[in-house]
Design a protein around this nucleic acid. Sequence first.
RNA 1: GGUCCGGUAGCUCAGGGGAUAGAGCAACAGCCUUCUAAGCUGUGGGUCAUUGGUUCGAUUCCAAUCCGGAUCACCA
Length: 589
Amino acid sequence: MEQLLREKTATIVNNLYGTNFSAQEITVSQTAKEFVGDFTVVIFSFVKIAKKNPAEVGKEIGDAIQKEITDIESYNVVKGFVNFKLKNEFWNNFLLKASADENFFLLPLTNKKIMVEYAGPNTNKPLHLGHIRNIFIGYSVSEILKAAGNEVVKVNIYNDRGIHICKSMLAYQKYGNKETPQTKNIKGDHLVGNYYVKFDQELKIQIAGLMAKGMKEEEANKNAPLNIEAKEMLLKWEAGDSEVRALWEMMNGWVYEGFNKTYNLIGCDFNKHYKESDTYLLGKKIVEEGLKKNIFYKRLDGAVCVDLTTDGLNEKVLIRSDGTSVYITQDLGTADLRYKDFEPNQMIYTVANEQDYHFKVLKLVTEKLEKKYAAGINHLSYGMVDLPSGRMKSREGTVVDADDLIEEMIRTAKEQTIELGKTENFTEVEAEKLYYELGMGALKFFILKVDPRKRMIFNPKESIDFHGFTGPFIQYTYARIQSVKRKAGIDFKSSSPIIKANDSELQLLTQLYLYPNIINEAANNLDPALLANHIYLIAKSFNSFYADNSITQAETEELKNYRLLLSDLTGAILKRGMKLLGIEVPERM
RNA sequence: GGUCCGGUAGCUCAGGGGAUAGAGCAACAGCCUUCUAAGCUGUGGGUCAUUGGUUCGAUUCCAAUCCGGAUCACCA
């Protein structure tokens, strides 16, 4: 209807005043609540051209549109706004059609294949709150893109090799006493992470010792035995040393096992996991080819570089002077392999905005190499999660661990639910499932309701809310609707009531009607927050409606059917929308 | 220093050229013998960082300034 209004207005204005407006230039919005109407066309820009007063212009446009669009019942002009009120039949038709057809809200296929990379952890420490935001965003964006008619391939990337991986391996070799996740009874990723921390602690001691002997910090850092040994280990790894490789396989195996447990808890999934250990050699080959084609050059010290100064960036090293690969080398290989595997039209990288520069470089370099996928490279750059004190720092122990946070959310959900006595007649299994859904729902919604591009602040001292603009609020609304339907116990779906909607019904209908637009917008902007905000609006509208109107005790049977139909549709959309955010809704709570 | 992102209520966030700037939390006041009160209704709370400009209209766009963050690695 909004689009229709835009098109008709453009045509009418162009005919009337000899202008050349396109439909997209016309502003159409929801009518503000203090005025009568459903949708509003803003006509300020035509008033000047027409050289008439707003009331006249409004009348000309209003009359013409009312003639063109049969669904419009009336209109009124206030200043430069023309407010259109739709006929009851329009809303009744919408409600009936949307209720009868499960596919009513499906958007047309785009025939595009989009790859979304998300998660992307290093295999030397467990997942933290930063990964949580990454995973929630990446998963939800993937689901939203699917709902908007795209084919989506979800992929993960493991940064599973390099000096930082060797550090935890070395520390384990030195101080590990052959312990395993089984003997210590902790998750593998946490065990390995402990040794990454241990390395840093021991290194600090060594550096302090060397500095006491008169070395400067930089020098001490270079000469610390642990750092030297770590570098040696990396060389051994690259040379394929069997002992180092065996240790690497074992420890990474533990980490993957740990990660998989967390993924399961979060409820995310991937079509394929890539590992940088598999792609860095491929990346090297690509750089060599570029060198041969003179796209890159070899510096005197032997490093292979690309000159990006004409693009406003700096010189960038693609292969180190000692011949080993850097981060971008691996990414070049990974991109190439992925394109071979899936041939996507677009590759979206869900990576924090601290890497904006890196992705600019990656895109430029693939363009220079004339890779077919270069244009489709798209960095979904999300803001980092900070603490009130600033950035999370693993060295200072301020990192919020993913597993701990999830566990705490579920525990809080349990406490609050039991306090409210909501699960008294639940079985043990049902209750645990509910606590999980509520805890995860609160966490996911808390993260996803914020614009991904913006930095957000998480205060570990303040527990995440279960009231107001939250996941549980929407879950509660859904459960409430299901409860009403159970109580009603009639077949309302086969009815087709002819009702004049009251204010709160109309408000709810309008929000439901706008749902597909929001999906499209969220997909175009890669922004789950738009969806989260809208679902909240729907739930809020329902709860107002629920408070104002009796559903099962409505005045007439027809009205009862109508309200049940409306409630049912609301529930269905809440469930669909939450699913796209990765959040389950309970039938009872 | 260059580049990029941000600054909206006490706190966390919406709104990104249109009507009197909105939510949630926190505070306060009401609403459960009737469909689930994790709910609903109301009250208080704002120099939309500052200053200029463009416009019929600017919190929104542009410029400058101030404040915060990121980045400019042979780290990833």
